[in-house]
Design a protein around this nucleic acid. Structure first.
Lengths: 182, 182
DNA sequence: GTCTATATCAAGATAGAC
DNA sequence: GTCTATCTTGATATAGAC
């Protein structure tokens, strides 16, 4: 069952978002599939291997997402708002983002995962930066700072959603609109 | 040593920020003070008791902070920027904020801590909202949404700092200034 | 009031049977 | 490819000595 490997990655990905890297366990993955812990260890010898597989999958998905965006011929502003919708949807489905959860657990990650996480974060930032820059002509504007502000805001808001059992996305969209308007 | 109790709360507070509530342990607290785990259990019978003590301390500190702000006679804009400086300093010293870390661990917290956390988050939001509102006359502006955006941005940025070993505060201050300016 | 000793459980991981 | 069995470690927690 080559498929089992993918199933494990998907479940791990969801568990990391919910509970964090150091708190999710082979035990709960094995129970979910009604197999033993040992068979999970067969697919991913160490927890670190599974963690890296989760990160690799995310990295590929992001690369793919960025290239779709780049090939789109929509006007920049529309692209950016599509992007916000994607972020919102992604977050509704997924509680909080994988990178947010891993950043919280950062000091407990193995070195290999820290490095991969940095690559992913850098890719996220530059993807948003590219779209923001496309929509803003003024060369005096620091678009990378805006991209960082936007992503920080989204990720922060998701954590508010989780703790307050309320949807703060409309509030931060109000803020982001104010931030971007001429 | 009634002082020991306070020392434990302070250490626990710092460990929760670094590693999260479910990952910090009585073991490491006891090692730090060169005593046994059992003596930590003497001061705080259950982990939940220690967690609540940490939250109570934060709640009191916040109440105190807010009342100092309210009594200040500075102009609103200055107050707000003092507040940003406090946030930045606090965050430099403390890696990420306690509430950010606890929001990431939210689903593993005992019910009592979830409730206390919500009270604290609400207090943080209303404190910032009050200052923002003081500085903005226009009744059409949704100051609470701005407060949420600002806090989300700060908390998100801290997690970026941690993972990227870089200081993103100047970037988000650029964004927040743009957000607040007339 | 602080300790030792211990109980209990779940974690990550490995060896080797089938 | 999946299993049983087992090891080791570290977690929360309790009982009871001093």
């Amino acid at each position: 069952m080559e498929n089992r490997k993918t199933q494990i990655i998907e479940l791990a990905s969801s568990l990391i978002r919910k509970k964090g890297y150091s708190t999710f366990s082979y035990e709960e993955i094995s129970k979910h599939f009604s197999v033993t812990k040992a068979s999970i260890h067969y697919h991913f010898e160490k927890k670190e291997d599974l963690g890296l597989a989760v990160l690799d999958r995310l990295y590929q998905a992001l690369l793919n997402y960025r290239s779709v965006l780049q090939q789109s011929s929509k006007p920049a502003e529309e692209k950016l708002y599509d992007c916000f919708i994607d972020l919102t949807r992604h977050f509704e489905k997924n509680d909080i983002s994988l990178t947010t959860s891993l950043k919280a657990d950062y000091c407990m990650l193995p070195e290999s995962m820290k490095q991969k996480l940095q690559e992913i974060v850098e890719l996220e930032l530059s993807t948003i930066d590219e779209i923001v820059a496309e929509g803003i002509d003024d060369p005096a504007v620091n678009t990378r700072a805006l991209a960082i502000t936007i992503l920080s805001t989204f990720e922060g808001a998701l954590q508010y959603n989780r703790a307050m059992q309320k949807d703060f996305i409309p509030d931060i969209m109000y803020g982001i609109n104010r931030l971007l308007r001429r």
